[in-house]
Design a protein around this nucleic acid. Sequence first.
DNA 1: TTGTACGCGTTATCAC
DNA 2: GTGATAACGCGTACAA
Lengths: 341, 341
Amino acid sequence: MAKKNITFNDIAKYTNFSKTTISRYFNNPDSLTLENQQKIADALVALDYKENKVARILANGKTEFVGIIIPNLYLHYYSQMLNQLLSTYETYGYKFLVFVGNGKEETERQYIQELLAYKIEGMIILSHTISSKELAECNLPIVTIEREDKHTCSVNTDNYMGGVQATSLLYKNNCDILIHINADIAPDVPAYGRIQGFLDICQERNIAHELILKNLGNTYQETSRTIGQLLESIEKKYPNQKKGIFMSNDTHANILLNLIIRKYGTLPDSYRIIGFDDSPISRDAIIPTSTIGQQIEKIAGEAMELLVMQMNEQKKRKPSPLPAPIHKIITPVLVRRDTTE
Amino acid sequence: MAKKNITFNDIAKYTNFSKTTISRYFNNPDSLTLENQQKIADALVALDYKENKVARILANGKTEFVGIIIPNLYLHYYSQMLNQLLSTYETYGYKFLVFVGNGKEETERQYIQELLAYKIEGMIILSHTISSKELAECNLPIVTIEREDKHTCSVNTDNYMGGVQATSLLYKNNCDILIHINADIAPDVPAYGRIQGFLDICQERNIAHELILKNLGNTYQETSRTIGQLLESIEKKYPNQKKGIFMSNDTHANILLNLIIRKYGTLPDSYRIIGFDDSPISRDAIIPTSTIGQQIEKIAGEAMELLVMQMNEQKKRKPSPLPAPIHKIITPVLVRRDTTE
DNA sequence: TTGTACGCGTTATCAC
DNA sequence: GTGATAACGCGTACAA
């Protein structure tokens, strides 16, 4: 920088006020005469002053930074969530430092260290890598979203209810056999609720059902092949039966749907399908696919509200820590489209 | 905060060194005895020291912050680009302050002010709202991506080449009539190159063609209806001809494809389709769709490289400004799938 | 190899 | 309503 930055000192000299008064102009303008306010305002434009929030942070400790660690932005769910979180800037004014987790524990730990070094006031964690116990030890307001959350505040979709809704809809479609295909996830991850919801409804209503827990593969090719194999075995196992299939997400539902359509040219009456997430693919599919919609905007909003509450508490003289983590549950929305009746 | 933060001063007292030595331990450890390094290292853990980068910024002026303004994260293209940009943290160590533009000029201007107040070292702009002229006046290293870029450094896809590739492929598919459907975009936006590429190839090779420039609507419903109408008029206008249709993006290509499949049960030989972007929908479509792939990772990489170069220049004693903005062009990749032969 | 003294730009605490 | 002065935590000449 050739020309030095203009500081309060320069303005003070220019206006014959003190630094203090200039500071007050910004933080408590009413304590100045209107006349003097104007003087300073004029000086600001005359000198082309640019504020420096870094100095302000050092002086008053408030960074207005929030850190976000998100697993990726490939999945529509995550990018949408980030979108909504960033949008809360308009409401709360917090700035976001964003890191994309890569699943490596050590790296994500470094991200957190980096965030702490910048004196962020709080964190929102969507990544699954680091345990809520370790997160809680950061001693910082934290909200986790849709992940293990024993020791942190969190906002989650009511996955159980989602599972119930999906299963019930298939049931009402008069399916003979209900099938849920999902990965073999741990019970402490919120998404496990979908499985439990499926099982409970089936047992409660005495519905014939099969739960297929299987890793479907990490690439599209792999997933596609695995689902193809599952479809074959299902066809063999349940011929002449009306099959209601509840897929763990819309991408998988779409793959299944495409396989069926390519085979039969249409979705036979013997198949009903429902996905999860309400991602664009469910709408863009050759047959718009029923799904369970997560209320992403609401989840993001609640997460920030929960975080802001904690951050405000921290700013008090004697912050009283939460007696226990708060967990908010957001109800999902059933989206009926053409793969169910 | 109940307990005060540990500072270099505390460590200095604890170890009987001076602040300076502590500082050196972090910034130039080799200038200390191994023995003394160990002493300080021990003190660090004993006192549970947490570094404070805000203070460091104030002292040395290097924030290592880069600002990003992105129009939205709905479109896969943008979320992917953000993903790749954020991933460069591993390479360069720059932290990212991210804002989602909302299209309102005044708001985005405020975002920029906010970023400047945090003394970011550079900006990457994907939003279209603010002119490159105004951006350049920030007097800060800037790289724009895929937008008007007369006065800023930029990285863009070679849209013209993309148009040429798409058009050539349809031509090689022995289509009787080539049709390009796009929005009525301004010639100074990079994406205009797709139109020009289409036109040039058609004229050069004397191919029967039609260019349809039309706003397809802002909602899915609207877009879907508009494309349906276009399809009808195309069928009337070119019966018994083999139609090669180049859509402006994969979402629109998919809508068109679905309409055709729903009508004919398959993609008739009289239709060849190609999209643009290589977004997931092109792969997930009922018939995997040919498309032009933008090399997002490469674009993001080049953008950061270009930005880092400028930022490094700024840190020199006497930074010499670029004589003219540098514009990098990244060649797209033709992705052949099943909607062309 | 280590220390002294000051600067970075703002806010907070008194005093007037 | 306004001002002097001391933080905030770290980097960096310059000196030793």
